[in-house]
Each structure stands twice: as C-alpha cells, then as structure tokens.
Amino acid sequence: MKKHKILWIGIIGILFLAGCSHLSTSAGPDNKENQQTENKEDTQEKTDEDNITEEQEEQKDPGNSEEHDKETASPESGPDDRAIEPQYELTDNWSIKPIKDEAEENVVLLTIDDAPDKHALEMAKTLKDLDAKAIFFVNGHFLENEEKKKVLKKIHEMGFLIGNHTYHHQALVDATEEEQKNEIVRLNDLIEDIIGERPKFFRAPNGQNTDYSKQVAKEEGMLLMNWSYGYDWNEEYMDEEALADIMVNTELLGNGANLLMHDREWTADALEEIVSGLREKGYEIVDPGLIKTK
C-alpha cells in the first residue's frame, strides 16, 4: 500500500513539473512581445513629454524662439531695410542745414563731378581710407566701355552715392526739351543698369538748369544740386598745394558748405590734404545719404 502511495506521489510530481515546463515555454514569446510593446509605449510617452517640455519652454521664454527665428531666417530677408531718416536738407543757396536736433551743424558736403574719367577710383579709395563720404556725379560718355562701368560699380560698392551729371555734359540751356530729357533720363537708365539703382541727385553742367530740366529731374525723383564753392577748374589752382590751401582756407567755408571738385589729377593729389584740413578746422564730412531728397 505504501509502495502504491509513493508511486502516485512520484507520478503527480512528474506531471506537475512537465506542466510548469510547458507553461514557461509557451509563455516566453508572448512575454517578450508584451515587453517590447511596453518599451515602445514608454519611449513614446518619453518623447511626448520631451515635446511638451520644449513647447512649454518656448512659451515661457518667447525670446529664445524669436532668436531662433532670426538665426534660421532666409538670407533674402537681410538686415534691417528700414529707410534712414533724413537729418539734413538742401537750402536755397545750395548748402545743407540740419533738420534734426541731433544732427551736427559743423559739417561740409563733398561732391566730385565728371566721373569716372581718369582719377575717380583713386579718389574714392582715398576717401574710403579717410572714412569720408561724397557724391560722385557721373557723365554717361565715360561709361561707354566695360572698364569704366566696372569702375563706377566699384565706387558704388565702396559706399559712395552716384549722381547724374548728364550723358554728354551738354549745356542744357542750349538744348531742346527732347535733348534735355535724353541727357538726363538716358544716363539714369545706364546708371541703374550698372549699379542697380537710379540716382537721387542731379547736377546740371555748369550749374545751369532750365525749367524743363528741373521738371524732368523732379519726375525722376532727383534733388537738384549746385554748390557753395569750387576752384579746381581755374588755372591758378591746377596744383595740389594751391588747391588744398584754397579749399580749406577760403572765406566761403562755413557750416553746411557744399564743396565742388572734379575728377582731375591735381584734385586727386590734394584730396587727402583737403579732408584733413577741413577736419582740423572742426568740420566733419557729412554722409550725403542723410540729406532729404523728397
């Protein structure tokens, strides 16, 4: 009887072990899949939490998001393109005067006519080295070859404003209205083709305008400009020292004076001394881009 009891206990033990082994084997893959599913859910929850955290941080500190937008902005958006507010205006006697309280009074304006002949680029480099601005008034007949077009483009790229001085330097008082318009508008078209913008200043040859040339300049959006004084076309001042002396020591020099010079060898040679002399007298060279043109 005892033998039978022991035998049954042994059989039951074997069956129990076999059943546990079967359950363990069949449950393995299911547990693995369940574990993978749980891991995926945990990962997704973690990602969602991270995203929420980033969104919350941007909401808390909008400056970071704005800074990011600036850093990732397209290059086409460029720097601040807002127009510079004018600080000076041209007077009836062709000098400039401040129209803003913060604008300096003791300034002078430099202008160079008949460019780009032979020395305009040299003069532009001198002014650039001296950190002095100027308007280069150009003639169209100097721009009829590619070399001179490149010179004009370089001058513009160096930061100098380009003005219209007519195509052929023809005396407008002796020209028909059709000729006057052609002298002005044809040059504006050419300048725009070279530098990508039309001039904002117009100076007639010899300073002689007509009612019609004034009308055309206005239609073209240009400010009429003559000058306060200039000397480099007079034979006695076709010399570096003589020209530098008169440009700085003339009695016509004063606040807002509009200085006329030309693309000439002696003027190019005297230019550095002229700028230095003006500054020694307490005058600053005004940026023509600050002059009101409309």
Rank of each mutant, 00 (worst) to 15 (best):
D30Y: 07
L127S: 13
G28I: 14
Y231I: 00
L130W: 06
L161R: 13
V248W: 05
Q59M: 02
N51S: 02
E89T: 12
W227Y: 15
T267V: 07
K148H: 15
R198T: 09
N258T: 01
P86N: 07
K281A: 15
I96S: 10
S26Y: 08
E235I: 12
P79L: 14
A175Q: 09
H169F: 10
H4K: 13
G28C: 11
N164T: 03
A268I: 13
D42S: 07
N34S: 11
I12K: 03
A27K: 08
Y283K: 02
N51K: 02
L252H: 08
R264N: 15
T210R: 15
V151G: 03
A18T: 09
P29R: 05
Q208K: 07
W94Y: 08
E38N: 10
D113L: 13
M1W: 10
I11F: 15
L190V: 11
I162Y: 08
E192C: 10
G140E: 15
T166H: 07
P79V: 12
W8R: 07
M238N: 06
I6N: 14
I9P: 01
A120N: 09
D92Y: 12
I291T: 09
F201E: 07
L290S: 02
E241G: 01
H4D: 13
G163W: 06
L143K: 10
T111H: 08
T250H: 01
H22W: 05
K292M: 14
G140L: 15
V138G: 04
S95W: 03
A83C: 12
E66D: 01
N258M: 03
K153T: 07
A27T: 09
L190P: 11
N226E: 10
M1C: 11
G19D: 08
T91R: 06
A242E: 05
F16Q: 12
D61L: 00
T126F: 04
N39M: 09
L187R: 07
H156L: 12
K128P: 03
A217E: 14
W94K: 01
T37Q: 14
L187N: 08
G289W: 05
Y283G: 03
